[in-house]
């Protein structure tokens, strides 16, 4: 049985290292059409990384999962034609207008409407409209993910590592805030900002601003301990998000690659693997399981 590791990448060099570490699919994008990708993914870089990935027999997925406004939708056909020419393997998309154009361009797509992808029937709707898989909302519990995967033939991608976006505003909320308090905002986009919730001073939610507005991230999710459940539940597409894992990301991917082979060989040691992940985890970011292990009944 085939388990696919999907990893973000911030450069061609990192992509190659990730492939060496076990990544099967490199996930990249830039801010006009995609959401929340680091690195300079010009078409030239996309061409380069695609050549590298294909040399190793691996795949490249490009993010087209932004909420498109008219000006983006207008130029999207040209971008898609360029991606098609490069020979990328698939894209992600959640905007129905973008999907319409992607289908016209005959490019395989993973359905990714972020927080909204919460049921089998919803995914099937897009399956009937040519989606080759779907990226489940991170707010869907593991119990529900299993139920969803059982009902459909398409692969449902599950995030096994890294932060996820829990708030997307089109407004520049950091800039607005700095203006409000009269604090200079030079290079705010390069610094790291976090908020903590009023009732949990230890919580850390990264906040980040770009041309698409403001994004608030969750804690770093990990399903390292639940990989056996994913395996038996038929959830075989594992996403690792390297947003702020930095240099540790390649090692983290390598660890998940080892976890995969241990699992398939019946040698998976949960406690050891969880401990190793904790050692690799940058200390300023909390590892957690978000809502994944909650009882669906708890969330109302």
């Amino acid at each position: 049985m085939m388990i696919q590791l999907v990893t973000t990448a911030q450069s061609v060099e990192q992509a190659e290292a990730l492939i060496m570490a076990g990544s099967d699919r490199i996930y990249i994008g830039e801010a006009t059409y995609g959401l929340r990708h680091k690195g300079d993914w010009s078409l030239e870089a996309v061409r380069e990384v695609t050549a590298v990935a294909h040399r190793y027999g691996k795949e490249v997925t490009v993010a087209i999962n932004n909420l498109m406004h008219n000006h983006q939708i207008e130029t999207l056909p040209d971008y898609l034609a360029a991606l098609k020419d490069i020979g990328i393997d698939s894209v992600t998309a959640g905007d129905p207008g973008a999907i319409r154009l992607i289908r016209n361009a005959n490019i395989p797509y993973w359905y990714d409407a972020q927080t909204l992808v919460t049921s089998a029937r919803h995914i099937q709707f897009w399956g009937k409209r040519d989606a080759i898989g779907a990226i489940a909302a991170r707010e869907v519990t593991l119990t529900e993910l299993g139920l969803i995967q059982q009902q459909i033939g398409l692969p449902v991608e599950v995030q096994v590592y890294g932060p996820t976006c829990i708030h997307h505003s089109k407004r520049p909320l950091l800039t607005n805030y700095f203006n409000e308090i009269g604090r200079p905002n030079d290079g705010a986009e390069k610094r790291e900002y976090y908020v903590s919730e009023p009732s949990d001073a230890a919580s850390r939610y990264p906040v980040y601003e770009d041309e698409n507005g403001t994004h608030v991230f969750s804690e770093d999710l990990t399903l390292m301990g639940q990989l056996p459940v994913l395996l038996t539940g038929g959830l075989h597409t594992w996403k690792l998000e390297g947003w702020h894992a930095g240099h540790a990301f390649v090692d983290i991917v390598r660890l998940f690659d080892k976890a995969r082979s241990d699992l398939l060989n019946g040698r998976f040691d949960r406690l050891v693997m969880e401990r190793r992940l904790a050692e690799l985890q940058p200390e300023q970011f909390r590892l957690g399981t978000g809502l994944l292990l909650r009882n669906p009944e708890e969330i109302k």
């Binding site: 927080t115 909204l116 707010e139 829990i166 708030h167 997307h168 505003s169």
Partner: peptide, 11 residues
Amino acid sequence: SYSGRCTLSNH
């Protein structure tokens, strides 16, 4: 936020 694209309340 974009309506629907906020799960602060969930988390």
